[in-house]
């Protein structure tokens, strides 16, 4: 195993524009979401009364009805779901793209003919992917801290935002690994990204289903969106250790699977 700085930097350059776009998207999502909070805060208790009158199913989607939307951090927990979705789409697509683009664009007759093993190619691409995720996560963290604190007039919420960002990072890595594993196993490069994002969306809808129905507890293990639910993090002021262990397990499995399968298969040239 050797680390190829040239390939790593090449991958960073290739995804630079995309990363800037997603970063702006994240900032807009935090800012746009929190700007609505102003209205809720002014309306005061009547918002909570209004929410209490909503049907349970609708309520579940908006945080199960336990959220005090007049407090900044609870409101942020609501927005956090959308940050999770954005982070998940970004990383699933990135993971798929990192591997599949060489076959889609026919550049694998260049890259894989270089004196570098497939294992080292995956490693450099994986690290470039993780770097992208870290940057997007930090952008989200900083913008969240600044914007939420600007609206917050209660206790400091820094700790809870930090916890949610760790949760976001786990979700990002999980879907990066799923994106890469899809690219390793799916032979038609154009199908990789749709399959990875399709899978990601189905886990999202599963988490919504569990929230609305309120039972089927065993299903929660199948959706990373449930592992790092903003409402639960704010309530517990902690991450659930079971889900952290489970996440690490999924990540290790998916990355090992990627290395193993991709090393064995024919490239589409």
């Amino acid at each position: 195993m050797k680390f190829y700085t040239n390939l790593y930097l090449q991958e960073l350059t290739a995804h630079k524009k995309g990363l800037i776009g997603w970063s702006i998207g994240m900032i807009l999502m935090v800012a746009g979401g929190m700007s609505k909070y102003q209205g809720y805060k002014q309306a005061g208790e009547s918002v909570n009364d209004f929410m209490a009158g909503m049907p349970e199913g609708v309520l579940a989607v908006f945080g199960g009805g336990q959220l005090d939307l007049t407090q900044a951090v609870w409101f942020y927990a609501l927005i956090f779901l959308y940050l999770l979705i954005m982070g998940a789409i970004h990383s699933a697509m990135l993971g798929a793209e990192l591997i599949a683009k060489e076959e889609r664009d026919n550049t694998c007759e260049f890259l894989y003919v270089n004196p570098i093993s497939r294992t080292d190619i995956i490693t450099a691409k994986l690290l470039a992917g993780v770097t992208n995720l870290v940057v997007l996560n930090l952008v989200t963290l900083v913008s969240s801290l600044l914007i939420v604190e600007a609206f917050n007039d209660g206790d400091s919420v820094t700790n809870q935002i930090f916890l949610m960002m760790i949760g976001l990072f786990f979700v990002q890595i999980i879907f990066l690994s799923i994106g890469m594993a899809s690219a390793a196993v799916v032979k038609k490069p154009k199908l990789v990204s749709p399959i990875a994002t399709g899978f990601m969306l189905s886990t999202f809808f599963l988490s919504m289903y569990i929230k609305i129905k309120g039972d089927y507890e065993w299903l929660q293990y199948f959706t990373p969106f449930h592992y790092f639910d903003g409402e639960t993090i704010v309530k517990d002021n902690a991450l659930n250790p079971t889900f952290i262990v489970l996440s690490i397990g999924i990540i290790i499995f998916m990355f090992s699977f990627t290395y193993f399968v991709f090393n064995k298969r024919d490239l589409n040239t």
Binding site: Q10, A14, D105, N106, F110, N114
Partner: peptide
């Protein structure tokens, strides 16, 4: 594979590179 490719030069039938790169940076990258 990687070891012997240090000494192999390959010209494929259809040449495809990264479209956004300049020739110079592509050659340096290679």
């Amino acid at each position: 594979g990687p070891e012997i490719k240090q000494n192999i030069g390959y010209l494929p039938a259809d040449v495809h590179y990264y479209d956004s790169m300049k020739v110079k940076s592509l050659l340096n990258y290679s």
